[in-house]
Each structure stands twice: as C-alpha cells, then as structure tokens.
Design a protein around this nucleic acid. Sequence first.
RNA 1: GCGGAUGUGGUGAAAUUGGUAGACACGCCAGACUUAGGAUCUGGUGCCUAACGGUGUGGAGGUUCGAGUCCUCUCAUCCGCACCA
Length: 814
Amino acid sequence: MSYNPSQIEAKWQHIWEDEKAFEPSADKSKPKKYILSMFPYPSGRIHMGHVRNYAIGDALARYYRKASFNVLHPIGWDAFGMPAENAAIKHKLHPKKWTYENIDYMRGELSSLGLSFSKEREFATCDELYTQWEQEFIIKMFESGLLYRKSTHVNWCEECHTVLANEQVEEGCCWRCDNEVVQKEMPGYYIAITKYADELLGDLKKLEGKWPNQVLTMQENWIGKSQGLEFEFELTDESKAKLNNKFTKYKVFTTRPDTIYGVTYCALAPEHSIVKELVDNGSITGKMAQKITHLANMSERERSMMDKEGYPLDIEVIHPLTGENIPVWTANFVLGSYGGGAVMAVPAHDERDFEFATQYNLPIKTVISGRQNENEAHIGEGELIDSHDFNGLSSIQAKAKIIEMMENKGLGKATINFKLRDWGVTRQRYWGAPMPFVHCDSCGLVSEKLENLPIALPEDVEITGAGNPLDNHPTWKHCKCPKCGKDALRETDTLDTFVQSSWYFLRYATDPSKWKKEAINKEDISYWMNVDQYVGGIEHAILHLLYARFFTKALRDLGYFEGFDEPFERLLTQGMVLKDGAKMSKSKGNTVDPDAIIKEYGADTARLFILFAAPPQKELEWNDSAVEGAYRFIKKLYDRQNRVTLDKMPTIDHATLNKNEKEARLKVYEALQKSLHVYETSFAFNTLIAACMEALNALDRQDNEAVWGEGMFIILNLLEPIIPHIATQLSETLFGRKNLHTKIEILNEVFVKDSIILAISINGKRRDEIEVATEATEDEIIAKAKEVVAKWIEGKTIVKEIVVPNKLVNIVVK
RNA sequence: GCGGAUGUGGUGAAAUUGGUAGACACGCCAGACUUAGGAUCUGGUGCCUAACGGUGUGGAGGUUCGAGUCCUCUCAUCCGCACCA
C-alpha cells in the first residue's frame, strides 16, 4: 500500500482527540513544561508564518511529552481589533459573528496540521468571561494609581473619528483611509508603565542568553535610560514680567553637565507652556505666532522629517553658574514629551544644537578640549576648558563634580530619564473590551463595581466607520453612577488589544474549571509559570513582549501572584517565511496556501519541509521542489517499514556486525544523541532531520534484521515531534507505539570503532589519509603517515609532527 | 547617524566551537527500468585544469603547526531606533 497522508493524518487526529492526548495532567508533582507559540489573530485563514510558528512549538511540546513531562501547550485567539470592524463595514457582518466564524474556520485549519494543543484551555479574548477579568485588572490598576486619565496630544484621524496607535500611522497618514493624521489634544487612559521602567530594564539581565540578543537590545533602547542632571533656569525679571509672572523658571535635563559652561542659548519645545503663554498673551503675534502654533500642532513624526526651524522668544534666562543672560528660543527639534520639553543648548558639543546655532547665527562656545573642526560639533568627551573651577578635569570627573556642586547649592539634582512613555490604552472603537468606568457629574470618574462586570459590548450596533459606535448607540452609555446612583455616562472608549495579549498566558495556566471564579489561580500558575519556551515572530520584539513583561510585574504587585517577575523564560524568534526573496503577501501575489500544501502532500510534509529548510531563527525561503523532497523522504520512510520484522527493540551484539551494519548503528545513535541537544538547546531541527536522513541512508546500505528494527525504532521516536502522523502510524504498525513511550538509552558501544581514519596534512594542508587501529601508538601513526605522504616530505626537513587524536596528523616541513 | 544581526557551491544549508570545509537536501549531469514521465533507482556534481596539481568560507592583514571558527581593519546586505538633549 502506498503512502496516503490524508487518510493517515485524519485517522490519528481523531484518535488524539478521542484520547484527549494533549490535555495536561492535574498532577502537580510531575515536572512540567509550558510551551507556548504566540496566539493568532483570527484574520480568516492561516498563513505559512503560522505553520512555522506552530510547527516549532508543537515539536517542542511533543518532545517534552514523550520525555514524560507534564506539558501545557495551549492555543487561543487574539480576537479583538480593527479588522473585525473593517469587515463589518465592508461586508455588513457583525464583528462578533465575523470573529467567531473566523475562529471556527482557523481552528479547523490548525487541527489539520496535527498540532498537539490543549483544547480545554482554548478561549478567545473577546469572550465576555475574559473581558470580565481584564476589566477587574483595569479597575485595580486605577485604584492603585497605575492607570490614570489625562488629556494630551494624540494621533487622530478625522475620517475614522478615532485615535490611532503610533504603529497605525503610516508616513503621517491613517493606515485605513490614508487621510492625514493630525495631532489633537484629547483625554485618554494611560497605564504608568514608566513606573516600571527601571525594573523592566534591569530584569533584561535575567533574560540574557535565553532571549535573542537582538530583542534584549531593542527593549533596552526602547526603554532608553539616561543619567544626567536636572536643573532649573531662572527667567530674568523682565522675562517674568512678560509672562505675567505665571512662570519664573523651568526645568531642563542634560546628560552632559560637563558642558554646562558652553550653554549659549536655550530651546523650548513649540508646545511648551511658556511658549503657549507668550502667544496667548500677545507677546508674540502675527506670522511668528502662526508659525509657532503650526509647529506645535505637528506630530513628532512630521517634525522629525523636516529641517530645523525655530524662533527667538525674546525672553532670557540666567545661567545658574555664570549668571550670564541667555536667550530663549523655541525649536522644532525639542521634544515636548521628554525631559520637560526644554534643553540647554551647547552648540560646540552637540550636533543638533550646533546645526541650529549655525542656522540662526547663535554664538558657539567651546568648553571641551579637542574641538578641531570649526564646522562641526565636538561630541566626544575630553578635558574641560573655559569652565571656571572645573578646568582640566576630564568629562567623566566633571560630570560627577558638577552634579555634586549643583546638588550642594540646591540648584539641581542627578536625574534618570527614560524614553519609554506611559502606555495609552484606549481606543474610540467598538470591537474591544469596554473601559469599566463611568463619568458622573457629582462623583467624577468612577470605576464600575466588580460585581457589575463584565461591562459587555452591546450587540445591536451599526458599524459605519464614522465615529465611535458605542458613543453613537442610543442607550448603552446611559447608566447610573456606581457610587451615588445618579444618572451618569458610561465610558465609551475600549481597551487597546495589546492589553488582552498581555496576560493570556496567565489565563491558560489557570485550570479552566476556575475560569468563572477567578482571573488567575495562584496555585496553578505557580506550578505552570514561567512559560518555559515562548515562540513567535520578531515583529513583537518590543510592543507585545514589553507590555506582557510589564503586565506580569503589575499583576504581581496587585497581589494576583508571587514568585516570578518575568513571564517568558526563554524566547525563540522565528524568521519570516519568504517566497521569491520577499515576505509572502497578497498584494505581491507570492503567497503559498497552507491548506493547498496539506491537501497535496499532507501536514507531515509541510511540517517537515518547514523545519528542514532552515534553522527556525532564520528566514525561510519557500521552495516547491524542496517540498517535494520532504515528501519523498516521508515516502521512503513509509516504504522502509517493509524492512522491519521485529516488533520490539532488539539486543544486538555489536562486535559480530559487519562494517556497514556498524556504520548504520553509529548513524542511528548519532541522531539520537543529536536529538537531545536539538530539542533542548539549539532548536536546529534541520540538523536533526539531516541526521535521521543519514541514518536511514546508512540503514539502506545493510540488511541486518536487528539493525533495521533498532534503527526504525529509534528514528520514528526522534521524528515523532516533527512528523507526528506518519511516525505514530508506523510506530503503531511496527512496534505497537512502544518506541514512543520508552526512554531510549544511548549505547556507548556503537561509538567505539575498530579503526580510525586520520587525515594527513603537510604544513596544515590535507594530502592524504590513513586508516589505523584504534589502539595504534603515536609513533606507529607517524610512521605510517610518513609512508603515505613520502612524496611531499622528500628532500625536506621535518620540523614538527603533531598528532591530534582521532582527527589528523600534521607534519611541518621546511 | 546609533544599535543589532548576517555574509560559506547554481540554491537552502552543515561543520562536535581552533583540527579532513560544503554533511543533509534542492537543482543539475549521466545511466538503469519504463510506451511515457515532473514516478522510481544508481552514480556524479565547489571552482580552475586534459591531467599532475592549484585554489576556495565577502575583502585585506594578523595570531597559530593548523583559522569558516580567534584578533584588527574594511566592504556589502538585512532589521530595529531615529533630533530622547
């Protein structure tokens, strides 16, 4: 009978389902492994990236299950988000219906891959039961001061009537309607992730060697810690008057206190409140006021793309050390949201300050030695000059001394700043978890009572794309204040979908029987957490992984659990799947449909190809003929079942075997040895598969019944995590699946060789090889080596002879 | 600009971490079996050379008996951040 993947795969998928083969055990005394591939967004159909993601995770889960671990390998759906609303607009389908139908379809696709997921723990983040607990977290965060409401500048699309996340703004335009995105000041809810900046940064150290360096570096840069000096500039009396004494001073931050004597001007962000005051009170009028207002209304992104631009504000501050008056400008390169929105400008030693100073003819004063070129800033550190008492000090010394002096005089203090901003978590959209808050005229912003949760979405909505459907709904937002009982208005913003993915791994780790009663069960998660291996795309390097790390710490501090600070013990970032050198995408027309591949070749072939073609971390180039090659290997494996006549692991007297038989055993055991390293450390499935291919090739070169039996017994065991259907089928037929439930010991005897082949090189260049007995002495080896390479050493002087055991002989001649 | 990675045959990739470069595949070439084959099997296949041999891991140096692997410089490609004071 020839290999029939669709029949074999359907058969085993049914058996696994009937056996509930992949549900974790409740027995917490067993050693556990929590293997997690990032959950998918239910977009409608799976793509090759999913196949790769889940094939990797599944191989690990199956391996550890086979190695007698209690394995948690769950799946669920990241089910809230904009595409559902877009589909609603386009196809007049309710987002809920669209989402759950997609989930049903994709669940079918994933199960056709034979993935060993726990089905009992599956959920969608749009399930009301999930929303309920998420709303509880949000309320607790609000109560503890971690979540707050503020009004600030946000990306706003006039066409869609919604706030957009930074990643949804493409070159200044809305990703959906391509309308220009404007900056708008409006209220929103923020989670104070910056309170955890230090811990998020510090704990990256715990992940070193377990997470890819690239991700750690990206997170480090994103958090962006910098140390320096914060101090205040006092305005001159004249300037204070101009500001109607509403301001007397403002703060600046610098990482280069050593250049403080080089300050020649000051720059404020266009949206700085002092600038606003000057415009508002008429100190600045006409064109200049217009231009400044225009700058203030531009997004950071827009500003970053334009040339430097600024205007003198005609006010001055007093240098805290020299007492000199310093002019104050507003400049578009000063960020409003960092370091107080104001900088001390040292054009001699800062590129940006230099460029601006040159452009507007502002003075430049050198205070660090070594500035040779008048046409550029000298950014490096050096020795201080023209800096009063600090002359002659190195930058490093001066930084410390100046900070110390400023602190002693009460002029400033050592400060740490972060680039990380608080996380804006609300969206003016329908398909998300509603914010559990109520606006009351008497009580202000009030959180819902926990017993009223979940605050569910109304189903009878019309989604048109214009405005917020919750806000437009006739009745939904009208409610009673949970505090005073008066008429009040429900918050109509919904939560960012990144909130849901920030704790789903904790939910999986809680036994589903408890899902109604609690969000997270302490005991359950103390057993299952951390996730031992997390697998996902590099595109989540910052956002999701940072939010999830933060949420873990925040929930820990809210008392939901204790004992761990980081959610993901090890992280594997898989490479993209490419076709014709480019990322697969519908617009490029270079997609490969997983369903079609599974239909033509079967899931095992798809999985084998994907794991064989490249190591998981690297990009994977799709190759149709290499897929055929994977299929061919499986057919060959299927065919070789005919060579097996024993139904169990034989005992073999190694010494009695001939050369090819010994070689076959050697290859089989080499593959076995390799499998440990691959599954537990390197994840280089490609090399394990290659080793199995070599083993099968070697088995083909001999026909010892016992060697065949042993070889297939082991190879099927090693390949089961990769090609589970065919491996289980053959294991069942040949060995009653005993080979899948046995720990196979590595036999050292097969690695012992009768003779060794040594390479012979002259001056490091390989010339020939010899075969010697294992027990041959070094002298014997050298003597034999010299015979073989006689023509190369003739007439030369031998300087040195090096014998590397089991490897080679190197003869150095002159 | 800053940061991170990656450069090995026609292609995807290996190389036990300093010890025979190119395992295993794809492709290609030749042959066998076939009415036929995009099926299957066998053999070959880094490059130059008729051969002896030479040469070869982006490039240039260096350390070493010996370097894909270590060091210095350099080039190219990809990714991330991008005026963070």
